[in-house]
């Protein structure tokens, strides 16, 4: 048998030429990772989870006023993203897309009496805390209660801005409102929070 020569078949893309190991994923954009995940590269999706899980946990915890429920909601958010991999349109707004799903999860959780009860049962009471910790916790509880007094629109903006560290543009994309509206809601929310937390 003679030695084979080489021909070049026609193919449309050389998509995964550079994907050798998961350590390279850290340098890739969210949209690139979504594309790879859609192609079956699970490590790419894992990188997205690692990249955003803490951020989602914080937003969920503040939005709900309970850290106990945050992992469930953040996990559901990632599962929803995974389930919709083939429908995701890469427009450079993955972070907003992710938070939009999370906020929907939070809204549903707020509506659920069962979940409220569960949150109560999972309250973050730890008997070993010292006085400064207790005071700090009380202060945080006051703030969480104040957040819960805000309308949904105001709470979303303030939580995304200060807990998720999203910029105005990202918040505007998440909520599908103009940037000016985001700012106005944020300033209104802060004014209301101050009135509730520090009356007088």
């Amino acid at each position: 048998m003679r030695a084979p020569s080489i021909s070049r078949p026609r193919q449309q893309e050389d998509k995964e030429e550079d994907v050798r190991d998961s350590t390279q994923f850290a340098r890739r954009s969210d949209d690139e990772l979504m594309k790879l995940a859609r192609e079956g590269v699970d490590s790419a999706f894992d990188e997205l989870v690692r990249r955003y899980q803490v951020e989602l946990l914080r937003v969920a915890a503040r939005h709900l006023g309970s850290s106990a429920l945050a992992p469930d909601l953040a996990q559901n958010t990632f599962l929803q993203v995974y389930g919709a991999l083939d429908r995701y349109e890469a427009r450079g707004t993955f972070r907003a897309y992710l938070h939009r799903i999370l906020l929907n999860q939070c809204k549903m959780a707020h509506r659920s009496a069962k979940i409220s009860l569960r949150a109560l049962q999972h309250s973050e009471f730890s008997p070993g805390a010292d006085e400064p910790q207790i005071l700090e916790r009380e202060k945080r509880r006051d703030l969480e209660r104040a957040l819960n007094c805000l309308s949904e629109k105001l709470r979303c903006v303030v939580v995304l801005r200060y807990c998720g560290d999203l910029d105005y543009e990202e918040i505007a994309q998440t909520l599908a409102v103009p940037v000016g509206t985001v700012k106005r809601r944020l300033f209104d929310a802060m004014a209301k929070l101050r009135e509730i937390v520090e009356p007088g």
Binding site: S5, P9, E16, E17
Partner: peptide, 9 residues
Amino acid sequence: GEVHWFHPA
């Protein structure tokens, strides 16, 4: 005996 590459391209 020619080699045709499918994946990777």
